[in-house]
Design a binder for these strands. Structure first.
Lengths: 189, 189
DNA sequence: TACTTTGTATACCGAGTGGTATAATACCCG
DNA sequence: CGGGTATTATACCACTCGGTATACAAAGTA
């Protein structure tokens, strides 16, 4: 029975997301999971390895969904809506993981956690950038800005998601509309 | 001679921003500063106190500038430009501090560092939200959205600033124009 | 000159860190 | 049943953590 593996993963995610990767010790994780250290090291090899598995478990399925959402069909608005939906679904199914990965991504560049998430973010950025690049065929004014749009789009989605997780915004169908609309047409319309 | 105080502050900022508050020990800070621990504890009382002073020294002057930039004169575009300028100037004068405060703000809600920055962000959010609220007098369509606009505006500014600090965007006069334009009118115009 | 205040170093504290050597248990497969 | 394999616990490692008691030196102040 490798039940303990899943329990450990859940406890690690909760603790990391609540108090930060560096601030949480392995002692604390195994205590929360009701096991002892060798169990953790048996499954994950190291504290770092544990974080890597946490990221894999949640990000890999998400990236498959994101890849589906970023296929360009000639309707950029539709794609953006699907992308936003993918992010919101991730946030709603596992809020703790969303908090964690955002915190990790914006942690210092030389820090260990940041180096672990970076490849995931790079892949996701590529998906978004490709979407905007393909869309320039139909929206000439966007030419040469696909990287920046990928960056700011993700930034705005994360702003919305974090505001929702912090209780400043209530989730609704219309929220994704508003988000896409604000990104597409700005605040004046 | 309280030279050592300033040296300690500089070293702490550099280390915190490079590797994270939790990952850096006081030992390391005093070693970098070329002093010993009692010196640090003489000036700052604790590691936490040290972070608080770092935030005060950089954020308080910034907030005064931000307060000036957020006074609404009937021209929202002008205000947004001035706000963006304030953030960019902060990022260019002390990039390490900008990285640090962004990382702190997005670190887990229950973590110590996050609780230390939160009041600063709350004040700054209030300044931005007030600007958007006053602007609704001239832009009725924005009514009831001032909090969200404050959130997303700050998010977009930070996206641009971080992209600049990471070398993905080169700073120029026109960049602030583009930033304000994207926020105001979206990506389609 | 005598006293206080400020600043700094030596040396130390208990607690906790990530990680492991060893061994016992439990399981599946022959 | 018997032998390997997977899983788990006890007990420990060297090291670092944030923080401090004590003492000493310099400088202002009476």
């Amino acid at each position: 029975m490798s039940d303990n593996r899943e329990i450990l993963l859940r406890c690690a995610l909760d603790l990391f997301s609540a108090r930060g990767y560096d601030a949480v010790g392995v002692q604390e994780i195994v205590a929360a999971a009701g096991v002892t250290k060798p169990t953790l090291y048996h499954y994950f090899g190291s504290k770092r390895g544990m974080l890597e598995v946490v990221l894999d478990t949640h990000f890999l399925p998400f990236e498959r969904r994101l890849a589906g959402a970023t296929t360009y069909t000639g309707d950029l608005t539709l794609s953006l809506r699907r992308v936003a939906e993918a992010f919101f679904r991730l946030a709603q199914s596992t809020p703790a993981f969303y908090r964690l990965h955002v915190a990790l991504y914006l942690s210092p560049p030389e820090s260990e956690p940041r180096q672990i998430v970076s490849p995931f973010y790079a892949r996701q950025h590529l998906l978004l950038a490709t979407l905007f690049e393909l869309a320039t065929a139909d929206h000439g004014n966007m030419r040469g800005r696909h990287a920046r749009y990928a960056l700011t789009w993700r930034g705005m989605v994360d702003s919305y998601v974090m505001a929702m997780l912090d209780g400043y915004l209530a989730y609704s169908e219309g929220m994704i509309f508003d988000l896409v609309h604000q990104f597409s047409h700005g605040i004046y319309s």
